[in-house]
Amino acid sequence: HNGKLCKLKGIAPLQLGKCNITGWLLGNPECDSLLPARSWSYIVETPNSENGACYPGDLIDYEELREQLSSVSSLERFEIFPKESSWPNHTFNGVTVSCSHRGKSSFYRNLLWLTKKGDSYPKLTNSYVNNKGKEVLVLWGVHHPSSSDEQQSLYSNGNAYVSVASSNYNRRFTPEIAARPKVRDQHGRMNYYWTLLEPGDTIIFEATGNLIAPWYAFALSRGFESGIITSNASMHECNTKCQTPQGAINSNLPFQNIHPVTIGECPKYVRSTKLRMVTGLRNIPSIQYRGLFGAIAGFIEGGWTGMIDGWYGYHHQNEQGSGYAADQKSTQNAINGITNKVNSVIEKMNTQFTAVGKEFNNLEKRMENLNKKVDDGFLDIWTYNAELLVLLENERTLDFHDLNVKNLYEKVKSQLKNNAKEIGNGCFEFYHKCDNECMESVRNGTYDYPKYSEESKLNREKIDGVKLESMGVYQILAIYSTVASSLVLLVSLGAISFWMCSNGSLQCRICI
């Protein structure tokens, strides 16, 4: 991952900044910058967002509201009850120091605090018919004063009620008058409520006091790749198909172990950190130390980045220098085999997901714990399936590479015959000098055995068991695999060879 928040398929997220979902939807004055928000790819909250409900109280069923919003990608904020005409018999300019803005008392931008007009609070009834052709999110509140005197001074009615009804919602609220500790300079409380109004449905408000009335509502448009994440990451000019709280993932790998919460087309989250597919040879310690064997393909974004291909070729060293050249036929066979294998694994496992966190309130801790156990169970199954699949494929890959290298080895052996000696570690020792032209003939299969047989015969008789390297004779190393990324691999195959001279070296080696 890149540690950044990015656009998702070209669409920017909605960053709530210092506000949370509650503050944004109710219209906390400190969240005025969010009022123009219309569309987004996903919503970003920060872990310690401080601006929620400015007048103390709870947004009821907040967790369910977050779940609903996680599939919303755009909205239209509109005046559901026009301020100047909807409440002619009531005062609608209630403000509070708890919702101060720029040093002055204020109130929510989407709600109206209705109080008595003169000395009376006549029963009010108002309704709205949803003609938007889509779901409408309606929010309101109920004020709970701290004393009967406060109730009387604001609403005149000691036994007030609030009723809200639609086809799918029907509740009646009565204020709970009680002494409470002071929070944000208030002994009173406000509880906030919401409902989704279906197209064509009607919502009716009736009250004799204590109503925090809707002013603006939201017509919602769903987008199934949307979601809500909690993150401290910063926004950058970048684009992605998959976003996590820790950063964007741009990967076609089937798995990731970065974060379980994802938005967009994302690899499946697994616990494993070692889900690797081999593309090189079986481990040979001396070669492995030099980083030549054991190439791997990573299938977990965050564990290993991208696929690494092994390729086969020849390396030689003689009086004229040293050089490398790919054996294109065996390399292409290996590439085709690995590509098919990788595609097979991805096809089997690479279903892209959006995974969002589930919200539970403080009273639902047991449910949250149960949900976590269920999620953990599914996660263990996914991890096991992934590891088992790759384990089985790896064994076949190792066998496949062994065969490829063996074929190259036999190709060289059949040409050199007794003009060189096998020394048991995949290397041959020449009994004759071999210049670049000679080396090329070994690589392309045109090695002239009779041409060098007499010199080889004489050297075999002279050496008589002495280690060949100390006599200045020449080696050919018969097994060799270097490691390159897919891009470098293609470039390498396009070149005939490249040279690395070893000044004054008397050794001649050709490596497979």
Rank of each mutant, 00 (worst) to 15 (best):
N418P: 01
L487S: 11
A386H: 07
K467D: 05
F428K: 01
S505P: 00
Q256E: 09
K329V: 12
C438D: 04
T240D: 10
I476R: 05
F293A: 03
K417C: 04
K241T: 09
E440Y: 10
E387Y: 05
G377F: 05
M500W: 08
N361G: 15
R460L: 08
L391H: 05
R282G: 06
K372N: 14
D435H: 06
I338A: 03
D402Q: 09
K451I: 09
S234E: 15
V261R: 09
L253I: 01
S330I: 05
K411M: 09
S234N: 07
G494H: 00
P260A: 15
T244K: 04
L468F: 04
L389R: 03
F498V: 15
L493N: 00
A325G: 01
Y447T: 07
A297W: 14
L389N: 05
N362K: 10
Y449S: 11
G445L: 10
Q317K: 11
E393V: 07
L281S: 00
V466R: 13
I346C: 05
L392T: 14
K268N: 09
L391N: 10
W499S: 00
L477R: 10
E359N: 05
V342Y: 08
P245G: 09
L388V: 12
N343S: 15
V390I: 15
I510D: 01
S234L: 13
R509F: 00
N232P: 10
Y452T: 14
I258Y: 07
M367W: 14
S486C: 07
T262E: 01
C501K: 04
C238G: 07
D380W: 09
T482A: 13
G294R: 11
Y384E: 07
K457S: 13
I258M: 09
F400A: 03
K411Y: 08
E265C: 04
E422M: 06
I338R: 02
G445I: 11
K274E: 00
I463V: 15
H236G: 13
I381R: 02
V270K: 01
V270R: 00
L388W: 13
S234F: 08
T383W: 11
A386W: 08
D309E: 12
A334R: 05
P285K: 13
E410Y: 14
I512L: 15
E265D: 14
V405G: 00
A297F: 09
L379T: 12
K451L: 15
M349A: 09
R366F: 09
T279M: 07
Q352Y: 00
V270Y: 01
S485Q: 07
L281T: 09
A484N: 01
